[in-house]
Amino acid sequence: MDKNFAARRRRDLIIAAVLVALAALAPLLIKDVYVQNILILTLMYAALSQSWNILSGYCGQISLGHALYFGIGAYTTELLFTKFGVLPWFGMLAGGVIAAIIAMGLGYPFFRLRGHYFVIATIVIAEIGLLLFQNWEWAGAAMGITVPVRGDSWLKFQFMRSKLPYFYFALVLCSLAWFVTWWLEDSKWGFWWRAVKDNPEAAESLGVVVFNSKMGAAAVSAFLVAIGGAFYAQFLAYIDPESVMGFQFSLLMALPAVLGGIGTLWGPVLGAAILIPMTELTRSYIGGSGRGVDLIVYGALIVAISLALPRGLVSLFSRSKAKGATR
C-alpha cells in the first residue's frame, strides 16, 4: 500500500483517539441529564450506523432490514435475563452470535438477489420478524418486556441513578465499531468488499469469492448491531417489538451513514453527530405541540442534505480526499 494511504490511516487513528479521549472527558463538564441522554443516543446511532455501513456501505448490499438484528440483540438479552436470570453481558454476546448466525442463514438465499429485489427482501424479512414477535405471547407479544429493576450494578448492567455508565459503554461500542471498520478497511476483506461493490463479476473473475465476502460482511454487521440492540434494551429498561424492530428503525440506522457519507470511515460518526442532536432538539423544542412541526423540519433537512451532498457530509472535508481517491 502506498504512503498516502498508510499516512491517512495513521492520521485517522490519531484523530479517533483524540476524539474518544475528549468524549470520555465530556461528562466532567456536562452534568445535564438531558444532554447526556442525547450524547448516549448519538454514540449509539453512530455505532449502529457504522455497523450498517460495513455491509451496506463497503460491501454495497443495501439492507433496510437491520432492525431485525437490533431487535434480536435486544430480545435475546432481555428474554435470557427476565426468564432465565442470565446476566445481560452474556445475553449481549448470545444476541450478537444469534444475529450473526441468522444473518448468514439469510444471506445464503438473499445474496443471490440484486438491486431492488434484495432491498425489498431485507425489508420484508425484518417485517416478518416484527410480526412474529408481536404475536409471540411468551416474549410479551405487542406489550414487550419491562426489565425488572434490581438496583445499580455493573454486573447486571443496570443503572437507575446515573446515566454515565451507559455513556461510557456507548462510547466503547462506538469506538469498537469504528475500530473494526478501520481495521477491516485495510484488510483482505475490506478490499474484497469494495471490489464486490464496484463490480461483482470482475471481482469474481479475479478470484474474490463474492458470496463469502458478502457473508462475512453480513455477519460482522449483524453482530455489532445486535450488541447495540442489547445496549438499547438495558438503557431504556423496556422494549417492545415496534420500537426495536420497526421499519423506521432500519431507516434511522442507515440515515447517519447516508447523510454523513456512505461507505466511508467517518461518515456514520459525522452523520450521527449532526443528525441525532438535531432530531432530539427539534423534537423537544418544537415537537411539544404534538402537531408534527418537528417532523416537517426533520424531513426537510433530510431532503436538503440528501440533495445537496449526495456523497454525504464527509465530502465537505475532502480536499485531501480528492488526492486520496487517486491512490
Binding site: 443495501i62 440515515l255 447516508v258 408534527g292 418537528d294 417532523l295 423540519v297 431532503v303 454525504g312
Partner: peptide, 23 residues
C-alpha cells in the same frame, strides 16, 4: 449513490408530508 439519494429524498418527503398532515 443515486439509489440512496432517491430513497432518502423521498423518505424525507414522506416525513414532511406526514408532519404537514398532522399539522
Amino acid at each position: 449513490n443515486a439509489g440512496m439519494v432517491q430513497i432518502f429524498t423521498t423518505f424525507g418527503l414522506a416525513i414532511v408530508m406526514r408532519g404537514l398532515a398532522q399539522y
